[in-house]
Amino acid sequence: MTINWFKYASPASFYFLAGRMIPYFSIAAIIFLIVGLYIAFFSAPTDFQQGEAYRIIFIHVPAAWMSMFLYVVMAFWAGIGLAFNTRLSSMVASAIAPTGAMFTFLALWTGAWWGKPMWGTWWVWDARLTSELILFFLYIGFMSLQAAIDDPRRADKAGAIIALVGVVNIPIIYFSVQWWNTLHQGASVSLIQSPKMATAMLSGMLIMALAVWMYSIVMILIRARLIILERERHTAWVSELKEGVLE
């Protein structure tokens, strides 16, 4: 039996595969969200230092993780599209950007609303906060640049260069709390140290992280399908789809 590894690299095959996967990821997102929010508000204990204010962590940390992770995935696919001229890779990169920007905004917003009661200020120009703000501008820059160029393939290439250059910002965000003296606390979860927080807090945070992960996959797949149709609207398979031949 031979497997055609490149089958889903074709926008048409991916369009149908994505359509079949969306319901499963949606259900997973809803289940993780319900369980995660239940733990966040009903099962996790009150923090001995921060009282109930720390409950912002259950949205802040998953959003911040997602903002960085999505950027790396976006830059990866944009880079693949640039290097190998694969149309679908670039379309997926474009589909990721708005969701990534949304989570970056959310990380900044929830950070401000957590900083105000704990630090006494909404915002400080310290390394962690500033580099995360730069990440937001990178997403916005990527999207604006692509929107400003009419030819989609040229827009892909220009976007890929911004995305790849901006990757340097990701380790800066991640290690900023170690490299500089910042107001922001250190990493909540580390691969080399045992967790510093209560089990319920940690599990709630990880389940919320899974929820935003599933949510992102759903949004990206839906948006990728729209981008595929937008760009492939003159092709035979889209015409067949419109006429119902492929149904």
Partner: peptide, 29 residues
């Protein structure tokens, strides 16, 4: 929320609005 209601709900409300906003944007598109 132990006196932190404004901050906790201010965060979660905007998270909900972001999700709704993204879904509306996709529907318009």
């Amino acid at each position: 929320m132990g006196g932190y209601g404004l901050y906790v709900w201010g965060s979660y409300l905007v998270a909900v609005l972001c999700v709704i906003g993204e879904i509306i944007a996709i529907r318009i598109r």
